[in-house]
Nucleic acid binder design. Structure first.
Lengths: 246, 246
DNA sequence: GAATGTCATATTGTCCGACACTAAGGGGTA
DNA sequence: TACCCCTTAGTGTCGGACAATATGACATTC
C-alpha cells in the first residue's frame, strides 16, 4: 500500500495572519486603498501578540499587497510593477539564465510591443519617444547613459501598447538583455549605428500607424542584437544581475 | 526656483538587515544552499535584537531568497518559479487585466513555446505530453479537470523548450487565460472539439520535429481560443483570480 | 478665513526577557 | 552498523517597555 505523500505543513501564527489578510484582499473584501487597523488592534483581533502580527505584515509588505505611505498608515495596495520586475530580474539572474534564453523570448515580445504601440500610442507619446531617441543619439560614447536610454526606449514602447500583461512580462527580460549592450558594443563597430537606425525606423512606422512595419523593424532590431551577441561570443553567457550596475 | 523632490526615505533597522543579506546573496558572497547563522547570532552580528532580525528574515523569506527546509535550518535559495508565478498572477488579477491583454501576449508566447519544444523535447517528454492529452480527452464533460489538464498541457510544452525565461514569463499568463475556458465552453459547442484537435496536431508536429508546423498549430489554437472568447463576449472582461478556484 | 504654529495622543520601531516545543546531534546499547 | 534515548540549542510566541514621531485638534497670526 502506498501512502500518499501529502507534505504536511505546519502553519505558524504569523503565516496565518498573513494568509488571512491576503485572502481577504484577494477575495475583494479589502480593496486597494483601504486602511488597515493598527498593529495593536490587529493583534487582539487575531488573538496573537503584536510581534507576531508584525512578522505577518512584513510578509505582506514584501509581497506588495500592503504598504506604508507613512509609518503610521498601513493600507492595502496592488503590487507595483517595478517590484515584480525587480523580483523576476533577481530570480533570473540567480538562476543564471543565458542570453540565448532572454533573446528567444525578446524576439517575440518586442515585435508585439512595437506592433500594438504603433496601433494605440497617442501622437504625444510618439513625440516623447522621439525625444528619448534623440537623447540616445546624443549620448554616443557614454556607455552607461546609452544603456539607460536604450532600456527606457524599449520600456516606453512596452507601455504605449496599453497592455499591462505585456509590460509585466517583457520588462525584467529586456532589462537583463539590454545590459548586454555593454559587452557587445566593443566587438561590433557597426552595431551602435544599426541600433540607432532601427530605432528611427520603428518611430517612423509608428508615426504612419504602420503596425506591420513597426513589428518588422522591431524584429530586425532584436535579430541584429543577436548577431552582435554572437560576434561577442555571448550566446550562452550568463546575463548579469542588473543590480550589479547600480 | 524648483526644489528637487528627493523622496527622503528612512530605512529602518529590519530593512537594513534584509538589504544587507540580500546584497550579499546577489553579490554572490552567499550562494544558494549556504546555511545562515541562527537568529541570535545574526542579532549580535548586526547589533540589533532578535525581533528585528526576524522581521528582516520574514522579508527575505517572502522574497524567496532564503527559506527554511525545517524550522531549524535557514538557507539561501534561488527564488522558486511557482512562487513568482503566484505573485505575478495575483498582481495581474488585482490590477484587473482583461482577457484581451492576456490573449495578445499568449498569441506570441505559446507559438514560441511549441516551436522550441518541437526542436528540443526528448522523445520521452513527447510521450508524456501525449499521455496528458489522452487524459484530457478522457475528461470530457468534467470542467474543473479539463481546465487543470489543459493548463498542465501548456505548462509542459512551456518547460520542454528548456527556456526558463519563457517558462517564467508565460506561466502566470496562461494560467489566468485558460481559466477562461470554463466561461467559454458553454457558449461554443464546437470549441472543445477543436481544442482537442489542435493539441493532437501540435503533438504530431513535435513528433516530426517540425518546428514550423508546431508553431503554426499553437497559433491557430490560441486564435481559436480568442474566437471562443469573442462568442462568449469576454474580450474585455476581467480575468478571474486563479486563487478563486482553489 | 486661511495659513501657520503649538500640543497631546496614539502608534510605530526597537529593545529586553522569558518559556514551551522540537529538530539535530551525541552517546549509549543491541 | 543500526537503532534508540537524551541533551541541547534554537525557533516561535508571548508580554511588557520606551523613545521617537506622525497625526489630528486646537490656538494663533495675518
Amino acid at each position: 500500500m502506498s501512502l500518499t505523500p501529502r507534505p504536511i505543513n505546519v502553519t505558524f501564527a504569523y503565516q496565518q495572519v498573513a494568509e488571512e489578510i491576503e485572502s481577504q484582499i484577494l477575495r475583494g473584501e479589502l480593496k486597494p486603498g483601504d486602511q488597515l487597523p493598527g498593529e495593536t488592534e490587529l493583534a487582539q483581533l487575531f488573538g496573537v501578540t503584536r510581534s507576531t502580527v508584525r512578522e505577518g505584515l512584513r510578509h505582506l509588505e514584501s509581497d506588495g499587497l500592503v504598504h506604508r505611505p507613512s509609518p503610521r498608515r498601513l493600507e492595502v495596495t496592488v503590487p507595483q510593477a517595478d517590484q515584480l520586475t525587480t523580483r523576476a530580474g533577481r530570480a533570473m539572474a540567480l538562476m543564471k539564465v543565458t542570453f540565448r534564453e532572454l533573446w528567444e523570448v525578446t524576439m517575440v515580445t518586442e515585435p508585439l510591443a512595437a506592433r500594438i504601440a504603433a496601433e494605440r500610442a497617442s501622437a504625444d507619446e510618439i513625440e516623447m519617444l522621439q525625444g528619448l531617441h534623440s537623447d540616445l543619439v546624443g549620448a554616443e560614447g557614454q556607455m552607461a547613459r546609452t544603456i539607460e536610454l536604450d532600456e527606457a526606449f524599449h520600456t516606453r514602447i512596452g507601455e504605449m501598447g496599453r497592455n499591462r500583461v505585456l509590460g509585466l512580462a517583457r520588462e525584467p527580460i529586456s532589462l537583463l538583455l539590454f545590459r548586454g549592450f555593454a559587452q557587445i558594443a566593443p566587438y561590433a563597430t557597426q552595431f551602435y549605428k544599426r541600433q540607432i537606425e532601427a530605432h528611427s525606423n520603428i518611430i517612423a512606422a509608428m508615426r504612419d500607424r504602420d503596425c506591420d512595419r513597426a513589428e518588422k523593424w522591431a524584429r530586425m532590431h532584436i535579430e541584429d542584437f543577436w548577431r552582435g551577441a554572437q560576434i561577442a561570443g555571448l550566446e550562452d553567457a550568463v546575463a548579469l544581475n542588473p543590480r550589479a550596475l547600480s
